[in-house]
Design a binder for these strands. Sequence first.
RNA 1: CGGGGUGUAGCGCAGUUUGGUAGCGUGCUUGAAUGGGGUUCAAGAGGCCGUGAGUUCGAAUCUCACCACUCCGACCA
Length: 480
Amino acid sequence: MGKKNQQEFVQHITARSEDFSQWYTDVVRLADLMDYTPVRGCMAIKPYGYAIWELIQHQMDDEFKRTGHKNVSMPMLIPESLLLKEADHVEGFAPEVAWVTQGGTEQLTERLAIRPTSETIFCTMYAKWVQSWRDLPLLYNQWCSVMRWEKTTRPFLRTSEFLWQEGHTIHATEEEAQEETMKMLMVYRDFCENVLSVPVYCGQKSEKEKFAGARATYSVEAMMQDGKALQSGTSHNFGTNFSEPFEIKFLDKDGTQKYAYETSWGTSTRLIGALIMTHGDERGLKLPPKVAPVQVVVVPVAAHKEGVLEGARRVADALKAAGMRVEFDDRDNVTPGWKFNEWELKGVPVRIEIGPRDLAENKVVAVRRDTFEKTSLEIGGLEQKVAGMLDQIQRNMLEVAREFRDTHTRDVHSMKELGEQVNGGYARAMWCGEQACEDEIKEKFSATSRCMPFDQTPIDEVCVCCGKPARKLIYFAKAY
RNA sequence: CGGGGUGUAGCGCAGUUUGGUAGCGUGCUUGAAUGGGGUUCAAGAGGCCGUGAGUUCGAAUCUCACCACUCCGACCA
């Protein structure tokens, strides 16, 4: 159990405090979430990583269903003419679209975009599907992958192809569309906080930062442990920006033709990046129980001793029967110490150790991944105790992350303060509303405006940058 | 897209300066011992040295081009 070997192992993972980026890359690989492929910028998501995505997907999809949405599937190819219909939209996406120009041996007369997002195809179909106010609203979502030809990529944070969901809805009135936009933003906020234990700031994006083609964009913004912002979900109100060029019209109750109001909202596998960088530590990944593919790992100790394996298996089976996701690690080719480290690296919330001494006393040892707190528990009623422990971990991880975020967010009243603050967190500042000030802040500190919170209680009279009268309270941060 | 780094066995690396047909650790396979925080011994298997051209009698090593990954910056709805 050499110290030497342990040190060798630790060298595999770069210290988080030393080089956050390298640490992130190491965790992603060593926790076996993904692997690189021969396709530039495109990753293979491995079973453990995909299991996290499935847990995210299922729980979020339940929320979509609960709020009245239905799933559909749209083509992955979009004719160029459709993409060109909304000017801002095409301008925003053109540089990163991949094109199909040939089918079989034939050159295509019109090239096809591999979808970077599906507003245009949804709008085209909505124009066919809507005639009357009675057809509205249409509340559809799709789970799919999209492709954006990115110059630089990072696993889960920015890849050329990525998995996501995109909701697209159309409504009879502007008010309804705005209500939908906000509703889904709140779904994202609650999901991030309650399921991922990732606290977020939510609010409206500035004109500069809003989605190409949107009338208004709202986002949920998480804070990573290096103090940088990660936009974790967006919700857009398009007004009639798309329905006009795409001619999504309906005959309203008053007998007149009207354009429908559209929204869209999306989250992606980037949420996995948010999980890693919000919770991870020197030992690797740390997963909140609700998205942990393995919530409890049961490790027999001194498994060769009479009855240990059987006793440990009974405990694992009982936990499984109680509905927890349990892994019984009965591998005989690695030592318990090896297993402890490996499951910690993979972020499993609770480890149960069971050896001969425990069994003799009808007990087990339970260790929490979040606090490393070690407790001895009676086997009788263990299911309830472990389930309770998982709940506690889920909540504690949110609290710890919230504490971090709050202590790394500061009100700033000058450019000097702002520049210092964005080196390790979010700056809350007053802003005049002019893009020139955003540009200047970006130029000086490479920080961007993140969002304008809904609570707009002012902290100053004047803009942090230009000193003119302030109009908005807004967050600035360096962003991924 | 600009600057740095890397690419050799599953993984981590040495070998490149000074050209001579590939090595270490770990993992893997088999056997034995060990077993409460990354065990030990023994015997094996495993490589078109990122790709393509070139120089040379001979290239992992020298030259050129390309590709991929990675870090920093720019860009990024």
